[in-house]
């Protein structure tokens, strides 16, 4: 049974695309045939983060308009056997997506993939609505600050009322909270909301906490999903999140301030 996952947030710049790439790659690493679909038509980024931007010929909108087949548009990942990317169009805008068109593509993808990861654009308008409409599960990406939490809350409301499952009275979308750019040091100083605060406000299951990390920026620039950087804290945190998504119970890591070693303190090593 294929599962459609949407990675969404409401607010922009919180790490949706980074998360889509990492979760999608993580699922593929664990042997599940996965496709990551970029819904951010007009501002396509996923292909850059996945490092396949030079191989985009046909995109999502071409498939919807019948200008290309799905097989032509799917880009196979170079690193992993069972990972594919469906890029967004850079030359169109979100109005190029239609509910029927997206539904058709989703149905087609369902036939050959185990997981379909939908990378939602920011906002609560058409693009974001279409990205979440067909979802079975949602990963709500939130930064530990009030405006991001409020936007995620709004998005959770829409997931519960405006999705296909809600409209057809089926079992509601399963919601997961992913806290990104978490900085335990700043939390302890009271400059950031803590995990408990965010969990309490949003009242959904915590899928993972991704620490703020240089590794994320480095990975994005290199076009390598951060989850493949097994040495990095962010990569490990995403790895844990994927395991939890697949039903494993794991303790949450990277929540506490790490004490700096003597050498680090002496040479003032950067975070």
């Amino acid at each position: 049974m294929a599962k459609i996952l949407v990675v969404t947030s409401g607010k922009g710049g919180v790490g949706k695309t980074t998360t889509s790439a990492a979760i999608g790659t993580g699922l593929a690493l664990r042997g599940h045939k996965t496709v990551i679909v970029d819904f951010d038509v007009g501002l396509r980024n996923l292909d850059l983060i996945m490092g396949c931007e030079r191989r985009v010929v046909y995109d999502f909108v071409n498939v919807i308009n019948g200008e290309a087949t799905l097989t032509q548009a799917l880009i196979k990942d170079k690193r992993l056997e069972n990972l594919y990317v469906l890029a967004a169009s850079q030359t169109r805008d979100k109005d190029a997506l239609t509910l029927e068109g997206v539904g058709k593509v989703m149905d087609e993808l369902r036939e050959s993939f185990e997981y379909i990861v939908c990378d939602s654009p920011a906002g609560i308008e058409k693009g974001a609505h279409l990205a979440m409409y067909f979802a079975d599960e949602a990963i709500v990406v939130t930064n530990p600050e009030v405006s991001s939490v409020r936007d995620s809350d709004r998005m959770l409301g829409l997931l519960a009322s405006k999705s296909r499952r809600a409209e057809q009275g089926e079992e509601p979308i399963k919601e997961h909270l992913l806290l990104t750019r978490y900085n335990p040091e700043r939390v302890s100083k009271g400059e950031m909301l803590g995990v408990e605060d965010v969990e309490e406000i949003l009242a959904i299951r915590l899928l993972g906490v991704i620490p703020e990390s240089q590794a994320v920026l480095k990975a994005s620039n290199q076009g390598v999903p951060v989850i493949l950087d097994e040495q990095s804290d962010a990569g490990q945190a995403y790895s844990d999140a994927v395991d939890r998504l697949l039903g494993k119970e794991l303790p949450h890591r990277f929540l506490d301030v790490q004490k700096k070693g003597l050498l680090q303190r002496l040479f003032g090593g950067r975070e």
């Binding site: 409020r150 809350d153 709004r154 959770l156 409301g157 829409l158 519960a160 009322s161 509601p172 009242a203």
Partner: peptide
């Protein structure tokens, strides 16, 4: 179920009970 930001619930002509946040 939780009533999220942006949602509006109206109990016309009666009482409203919310069991969630």
């Amino acid at each position: 179920t939780p009533v999220r930001g942006g949602m509006q619930v109206y109990a016309e002509g009666g009482d409203l009970v919310v069991l969630a946040s």
